[in-house]
Design a protein around this nucleic acid. Structure first.
Length: 486
RNA sequence: CGGGGUGUAGCGCAGUUUGGUAGCGCGCUGCGUUCGGGACGCAGAGGUCGUGGGUUCAAAUCCCGCCACCCCGACCA
């Protein structure tokens, strides 16, 4: 969700129309790092989601689809290197490009229970996707030659799936011979209102297996930019064709009197056999077969995802869910924005063609929070070397002036070598306090100048492993430069 | 916007149920000892108890109003 405000539009227009107007100038990549603001209703979780944050975003411009693929792949590789160096666990998941209307999109997520994104991954292959972008594995159509004709039954006092299933299993004339009815045998039809940009409102019915619910996030993602509003008592009053609790396919669809657009969960394939509403209070239809007895206007991906659902790759694996923090997002915008901005260049044949764009973002300020969260241990922060505030933490211990002079000299020499040094020169503070502070701050290497000085050595500690090593004072600078640059 | 919680010394908190003139830890100041794993002794400083009103002989404590901050939800990179 990167903002393409007027400044972007003007800038892109200037770039492509006036400066880079030929295929010879492409691909063109540009990036910026800027402070952004988002009017969060309730900022929380510290740096993870503040009202103000630093954002790196970049854009690619190519003359054709193959070029966009190359630009996208190059950014993807760069992001992989960046996140590897940051020392973070991450997963790359398929995502929806959402508002940007692009064709391909992936997110870099750091697994974290505090994350705001839910994603699924396959237990046997490398498939991973944000739940919003998950494609349901469509089961094969079923034969229905021997399914009896649909029949309407009186099912009094069954406004919910639970009461309906209980009644069906409890009545001899409705009971199945092979097994009990379950909620998954019922077809639940949920009606919502969609508010389109510009204010136009539309009714949408979603038909899905009764053991599942409409997932608000998935629905919002697929209907974007329309906004989902609940179907209220007043709406029922205005639509007498929709009977609360007993809505069935017979009343739904653009071609029906109620003119409610009707979309089915992908699992509701031809030949599936359902118990569903008969559009009359207290009555349901049994043995209603998809394709034989009713059709819809299409399908929609909006049902809740269950752990154990089959992997969409169809290789027999199942899905598990996890939470993650979005650290980066790359996507292929395609030509939607370029079209709107009339961003054209000359191609090899001298024709004016619309460029195709990609967009790529990383949130550095939230990365700091996520790295800190992911790498800390029981005694404090534990910065990966690539992002540590300083390379070395030099600690002088004791009260001997010679210690402080040696520590200062060492720090000066290291700085001269281009090393970032944090030097604890506090006098009168006990060694234990200084060690604890150094561990808390979490520089990757801690150098102790203290009692070892009598033997001509300083102590070099690795913050993460706790390993300690005595190094002769004369070799300390060269040794430490090696440690930092390794 | 909905729900919940908290405001008492620089920081973290107890005290509020049952009204009786404010306490603990850390930090801070001074002196002495200590100095490689969050030192110790002695002596000190520091609070109109968020705010306005009410009840009472007496209010941090009870009652009413207001303000601020925090948490959960919705929303969000």
């Amino acid at each position: 969700d990167f903002m393409l405000g007027p400044t972007h539009e003007e800038f892109f227009t200037l770039l492509v129309k006036d400066l880079y107007s030929s295929y010879k100038d492409l691909p063109l990549w540009l990036y910026q790092i800027q402070t952004k603001f988002r009017d969060e209703a309730r900022p929380r979780a510290g740096l993870l989601r503040g009202r103000e944050f630093v954002m790196k975003d970049s854009y690619s411009f190519d003359v054709d689809d193959a070029g966009l693929d190359r630009s996208y792949a190059a950014h993807r590789e760069a992001y992989i290197r960046i996140f590897d160096r940051l020392g973070l666990d991450y997963v790359i998941v398929s995502a929806l490009s959402g508002a940007m209307g692009g064709s391909k999109s992936e997110e870099f997520l750091t697994p974290a229970s505090v994350g705001e994104d839910t994603y699924v991954r396959c237990t046997t292959c490398d498939y991973a996707a944000n739940v919003e972008a998950l494609r349901t594995l469509v089961p094969p159509a079923l034969p229905y030659d021997d399914v009896p004709a649909a029949h309407v039954e009186d099912t009094p006092d069954t406004p919910t799936i639970e009461t309906l299933v209980a009644l069906a299993n409890g009545r001899a004339d409705l009971r199945r011979s092979d097994r009990d009815w379950t909620a998954a045998d019922t077809l639940k039809n949920v009606v919502v209102k969609l508010r389109h940009p510009g204010g136009k409102s539309e009714l949408l019915a979603i038909g899905l297996p009764g053991d599942r619910d409409v997932d608000a996030k998935r629905l919002e993602a697929v209907v974007h930019p329309a906004v989902v509003e609940p179907f209220t008592d007043g709406d029922f009053a205005e639509n007498p064709g929709l009977v609360r609790g007993y809505i069935g396919p017979a009343a739904l669809g653009s071609d029906k009197p109620a003119a409610v657009r009707y979309l089915l969960d992908p699992r509701v394939v031809e030949g599936t056999r359902w118990i569903t509403g008969a559009n009359e209070p207290g009555r349901h239809v049994f043995d209603l077969v998809t394709g034989r007895d009713f059709t819809a206007d299409g399908t929609i991906e909006a049902a809740t995802v269950f752990e154990g659902d089959p992997c969409p790759n169809g290789d027999g694996g199942s899905l598990v869910a996890a939470r993650g923090i979005e650290m980066g997002h790359i996507f292929q915008l395609g030509r939607k924005f370029a079209d709107a901005l009339d961003l054209k260049v000359l191609d090899e044949t001298g024709k004016q063609v619309v460029v195709t764009m990609g967009s790529y973002g990383i949130g550095p300020s939230r990365a700091i929070a996520a790295i800190a969260e992911a790498t800390l241990d029981d005694i404090g922060l534990c910065w990966p070397r690539a992002v540590a505030p300083a390379d070395l933490h030099v600690v002088a211990t004791g009260k001997d002036d010679a210690v402080f002079e040696a520590a200062q000299a060492l720090a000066d020499d290291l700085v001269e070598q281009g090393i970032d040094v944090l030097y604890d020169d506090r006098r009168g503070v006990s060694p234990g306090v200084k060690f604890k502070d150094a561990e808390l701050l979490g520089m990757p290497t801690i150098v102790v100048v203290g009692r070892g000085l009598h033997d001509g050595v300083v102590e070099v500690r690795d913050r993460r492993t706790g390993e300690r090593e005595d190094v002769p004072v004369g070799e300390a600078v060269a040794h430490l430069v090696g440690v930092v640059r390794s």
